[in-house]
Design a protein around this nucleic acid. Structure first.
Lengths: 162, 162
DNA sequence: GCACTCCTGACCAAGAAGGTCAGGAAAGTC
DNA sequence: GACTTTCCTGACCTTCTTGGTCAGGAGTGC
C-alpha cells in the first residue's frame, strides 16, 4: 500500500502545471520547481501525455500544459495514468477475486478499501491543491490528531513509521 | 497501492485460525483450506508469530493459534505485521514529507489517504470476517454499485481493471 | 540551418515479490 | 530412547518493479 516515487512526482508535476495556468512549461522548470530528476521526469510526462492528462509541444517556446482545466483533473486521474489501477489485490481487481470458506467476506473488505481510497483521490483536484482549499472529506480525515501519527506497536513500525 | 499476495495470505490464514477457535491448527490444514503454498505460508506464519499476532507449538498435536481473541485482532494488525506501514509515500510516512511551493498541500492528501485506509482496516476484526457481520463503515462503502466496478477510461484500466 | 525542447528506446543496479529446498529443533508417542 | 510430527530458519532462486541514466532522433520556431 505504498505510493511510488513515480506517482508522487507525477502529481507534483501536474500541480505545477496547474499553477502555471495557460502557457507551456518546460520540463526543466518542472524538474527544478519540484526537485525531480529531469530525465526520469520526462518519461513520466510522456506517460501523462499518452494517457491524455497533459499535452506538449517541442522546440523553442515548447513545453507541457494540462489537457483539461485544473479543476477537472483529479489526483486519481494522475495516479492511475502512471501506476494503473489504484487498489489491486494480487494484481487483480478486488471484485474479481474468489475467496472460499471463512475468507469469503474478505472480498467486501478489499472493495471497501478501494472505495475509501477513491473517496479521497477522486475528490481532490489539481485546482484544489493549488488554491490550498481541500475538499471537506480531506479536512475531516486530517482533523483528528491521530491521523498525523504513525501507529505504534511492532518494532517494524517504530523503525519505519506508518 | 496494491495488496501483496503475502498480505492476502496472512489475513486468510488468520481468519482460518479465528474460525477454528481454541485448539492449535496445523500449517498444512491452513494451507489446504485457503489454497496457499505451504512452504511460503510457513514463512508468513513465522512473521505473524514474531509480531505477536499468533502463537505456535511444535510436534504432534502442535500447530498455530491466535495470540488474542479474534474480536481484538484487526486486518490492519495482520497486514502491518507482514507488510509494515500501511500507507507510505516513497518509503516515508506521509506526515514526514516536506513538499515545496505548489505541492505543499499534497502532504495533507496523503495523510487523508492513510486515514481513510485505517478507517477500514482498523475497524474490521477477524471475528467480523468469520461471522459475516462487517462493520457499518464497510457496509456503507460497498453499498454503492460503483464500488464494485472497475473505473473506465484509459486503456490500461480496461486491460488491468481497477 | 540552427537552437531548443520534447520523444523514445536501451540499458542498468538494487530491491521486492513469490516462491522452493534442505535441514534443524522442540514436542509428543510408544 | 527412538521415532514421528510439526514448527523454525536460513539459503537460494527467478521474475518483476523501481528509480533511475544515456544516447540519439524528431518536431518547432526563428
Amino acid at each position: 500500500m505504498r505510493v511510488s516515487a513515480k506517482a508522487d512526482y507525477a502529481v507534483r508535476a501536474a500541480v505545477e502545471l496547474a499553477a502555471a495556468g495557460e502557457g507551456p512549461v518546460k520540463g526543466e522548470r518542472l524538474a527544478e520547481a519540484q526537485d525531480i530528476p529531469l530525465q526520469f521526469l520526462e518519461h513520466i510526462l510522456l506517460e501523462l501525455k499518452h494517457q491524455g492528462i497533459i499535452r506538449a509541444r517541442r522546440g523553442a517556446k515548447g513545453g507541457y500544459w494540462l489537457a483539461r482545466p485544473a479543476d477537472e483533473v483529479t489526483i486519481a486521474d494522475v495516479v492511475r495514468a502512471v501506476e494503473g489501477p489504484i487498489a489491486d489485490v494480487q494484481s487483480t481487481p478486488p471484485e474479481a477475486i474468489q475467496y472460499t470458506g471463512n475468507a469469503e467476506k474478505l472480498r467486501e473488505v478489499w472493495v471497501a478499501v478501494r472505495a475509501s481510497l477513491r473517496s479521497v483521490l477522486e475528490n481532490v483536484t489539481l485546482a484544489d491543491l493549488v488554491s490550498g482549499q481541500l475538499p471537506t472529506i480531506v479536512e475531516e480525515l486530517t482533523a483528528a490528531p491521530e491521523a498525523w501519527q504513525a501507529s505504534t506497536g511492532t518494532k517494524e513500525m517504530v523503525a519505519k513509521g506508518d
